[in-house]
Design a protein around this nucleic acid. Structure first.
Lengths: 215, 215
DNA sequence: ATAAAACTTCGGGTAAACCCCTAAAAATAA
DNA sequence: TTATTTTTAGGGGTTTACCCGAAGTTTTAT
């Protein structure tokens, strides 16, 4: 039995999805959530195999929710669902642990297939989504990184400072921008150098760009 | 009727493929090629809809052949076939106009489906290939440049210095490496800042990475 | 061929970055 | 609640980066 949590704020859509699922003997809708935090809340108290997660969710957006789920509930598979066949959405949520991505115009059969595929541990992407990604791939070319470099978690301030460093601001300018002391900025920079194992700001920015730390 | 040219140097494989195709009434094997140049030669004198092209072809490799085909025979669709589910192969040949990519362990049904899909003007990628590309996409993200930023020509020395700056070397280390004075290196750095319109080395490296100046 | 432009090479001086240290208030996690 | 991390900030010093200027060499263009 596959337990499914539907996380979407559009009632009609959830209803439709549920009506498709309830006719399947191996699938069971364990619950519904209409915003991000309640998804996390639901997972605390219920056994769920699959979360059908709307990428654009109110309160806490789908990407954040997905990140949270994969971090704390690694057994729970996320199948992202969205209105938009947008490359940025797709890669963003895939990078945060989603196992599949469907568009909302997906038909009954494909939805069921996707759920069972993902429940089985595989990945699933609809044809249109695949094509979107292929197209963007074709315009991209050389894939930068393949490295398995471990990137320690950066704090909020560190990320802010890093972004400003990458924008060629001086320490003083960063301090003014963030309304903190020059010394504080230097302290953050120092932490960044240590965490990212860089010798100087150039290394900081190179690593940041290679690992997309500037989003 | 879909006319197909099979371009592969492995006879047994071509035989197998042909036996699959000849039982289909809408498909017809127009010819076989065992190397790159003969593919181009065949297209000169024969009407072909689809080329089943081995990526690793003797004489003139598949990527070159594919480029040639899309340049001179835009109506001919290329369906790439390879032993290897290698991201570099896939993206390389897709960048050169191939409409699909199959692995050689592909079954009969999938082969037929791929041929008809590509003949119909769509793209086709096998599941495994899709996953490979997804994986690499996840490690990649936003590809380099789409910007129209004009990059002035850099001199030999400037490029050398730039590369070393990007590798986090200090000015003194760069000087030692190139057997020139510290002051000379700083002069080159200064030229770089001016040419690339950067405020500091961080900007230099960001611009270099965004524009692939480090090859 | 000759002038103009660009490249490579340095010196001196200043601003910025980087380092080592300490340390307390504030926010988070266990 | 307690422990850990984050954010804040300072003193004091060394190293590096950046700016201005300049001269000899090479390349490019007329």
């Amino acid at each position: 039995m596959i337990n499914i949590l539907i996380a979407d704020d559009h009632t009609m859509f959830v209803d439709g999805m549920e009506s498709i699922l309830k006719s399947e003997s191996d699938l069971q809708v364990a619950g519904r959530s209409y915003d991000g935090p309640s998804v996390i809340d639901f997972l605390k108290n219920n056994k769920v195999n699959i979360v059908l997660l709307d990428v654009n969710l109110p309160g806490m957006n789908g990407i954040e929710v997905c990140k949270e789920i994969t971090a704390h509930y690694p057994d729970v598979r996320v199948l992202a669902i969205s209105m938009f066949n947008e490359e940025s959405f797709v890669s963003e949520i895939l990078n945060n642990g989603a196992k599949g991505y469907l568009l909302k115009n997906t038909g009954r059969e494909e939805l069921l297939k996707a759920i069972r595929t993902v429940a089985n541990g595989d990945s699933y992407f609809s044809k249109e989504v695949t094509e979107t990604i292929m197209k963007s791939l074709m315009n991209q070319r050389k894939a930068s990184g393949k490295n398995t470099s471990f990137i320690p978690k950066l704090s909020r301030r560190e990320k802010e400072v890093l972004k400003l460093i990458a924008q060629e601001f001086t320490t003083q300018e960063i301090a003014d921008n963030l309304y903190i002391s020059l010394k504080t900025v230097e302290s953050h920079r120092s932490s960044l150098l240590s965490k990212l194992n860089a010798r100087n700001s150039v290394g900081l920015v190179r690593i940041a760009l290679e690992n997309n730390l500037l989003d």
